[in-house]
Simulated scan of single mutants.
Amino acid sequence: MTAVRLVDVFSERAFRGNALAVLHDADGMSDDEMLAVARWTNLSETTFLTAPTDPRADYGVRIWTIGGELPFAGHPTLGSAHAWLEAGGVPRTEGVVVQECAAGLVEVRRGADRLAFAAPPLVRSGAVEGEELARVVAALGVAPADVVDAAWVDNGPGWLAVLLASPEAVLAAAPDPVLARGLKVGLAARYPAGARTDGVGLEVRAFFSDERDFGEDPVTGSLNAGLGQWLVPAGYAPEHYVAAQGTVLGREGRVHVDVEDGVVWVGGATHTLVDGVRPSRRRSDRAQPV
Rank of each mutant, 00 (worst) to 15 (best):
V136K: 03
A138W: 00
L140P: 00
L140Y: 03
G141Y: 00
V142H: 00
A143T: 08
D146E: 06
D146N: 01
V147W: 09
V147D: 06
V147L: 09
V148P: 05
D149H: 09
A150Q: 01
A151K: 03
W152K: 10
W152D: 10
W152C: 11
N155V: 09
N155T: 03
P157A: 15
P157V: 15
G158R: 10
W159N: 02
L160I: 11
V162R: 01
L163D: 01
L163G: 01
L164H: 03
S166H: 02
P167D: 13
E168N: 07
A169Y: 02
A169S: 08
A169P: 00
A169R: 09
A172M: 08
A172F: 04
A173H: 01
A174K: 06
D176M: 05
D176L: 04
D176W: 00
D176G: 07
P177F: 10
P177Q: 12
L179S: 06
L179E: 11
R181S: 14
L183E: 09
L183C: 12
K184H: 13
A189T: 06
A189D: 02
R190K: 11
Y191I: 07
Y191P: 04
P192T: 06
P192V: 06
R196Y: 06
R196H: 04
T197K: 05
D198Y: 15
L202V: 13
L202C: 12
R205N: 04
A206R: 04
F207C: 12
F208V: 14
F208L: 14
F208Y: 13
S209E: 11
S209R: 13
D213Q: 14
F214Y: 13
G215R: 06
E216A: 06
D217G: 01
D217C: 00
L223D: 00
L223R: 02
A225I: 07
A225G: 08
G226S: 10
G226N: 09
G228Y: 08
Q229G: 12
L231G: 07
L231I: 09
G235K: 04
A237T: 00
A237F: 01
P238G: 05
P238W: 00
E239A: 11
Y241C: 06
V242E: 14
V242Q: 11
V242L: 14
V242A: 14
V242P: 04
A243S: 14
A243Y: 05
A244L: 11
G246W: 01
T247D: 07
T247A: 14
T247V: 15
V248R: 11
E252R: 09
D258M: 12
D258H: 14
D258T: 13
D261L: 13
G262C: 15
G262R: 14
G262H: 15
V263I: 15
V264H: 03
V264T: 11
V264W: 04
W265Y: 13
W265E: 14
